[in-house]
């Protein structure tokens, strides 16, 4: 389910000026967004993997990905690991 945090992340893809404002003054943009201190810390961390881990920790988002509650989630992006054509 969408949350203030996920909606905020999505908004950057739809609003280049907001993204630019964030890069100029991240604290001001984060303060205006009504995020929790933990969420602000995540976005200021500079580590995409921390954001990913936090998102996967959300049961709703984990379920959206198709992961069961007890299933481990990848520590890194699994990506689409292409199997090389071994037939030729």
């Amino acid at each position: 389910m969408a949350s203030n945090f996920t909606n905020f992340l999505i908004s950057f893809g739809e609003d280049p000026q907001q993204l630019e404002a964030f890069k100029q003054d991240p604290h001001a943009v984060l303060d205006a967004a009504g995020l929790t201190p933990a969420e602000k810390t995540l976005l200021l961390s500079g580590h995409p993997q921390l954001i990913r881990s936090a998102l996967i920790a959300d049961p709703g988002l984990k379920e959206a990905m198709g992961l069961s509650p007890d299933q481990s989630s990848p520590t890194t992006l699994p990506g689409f690991i292409f199997s090389p054509n071994l037939g030729s």
């Binding site: 999505i10 998102l55 709703g60 990905m65 198709g66």
Partner: peptide
Amino acid sequence: FLVTDPITADWIRDINPTAESLYPYY
């Protein structure tokens, strides 16, 4: 769908509630 980001997965399901992840096949 098969995506690597949970927000994208959630967004897809939001615009089409029939959406189902293929990730469990991994």
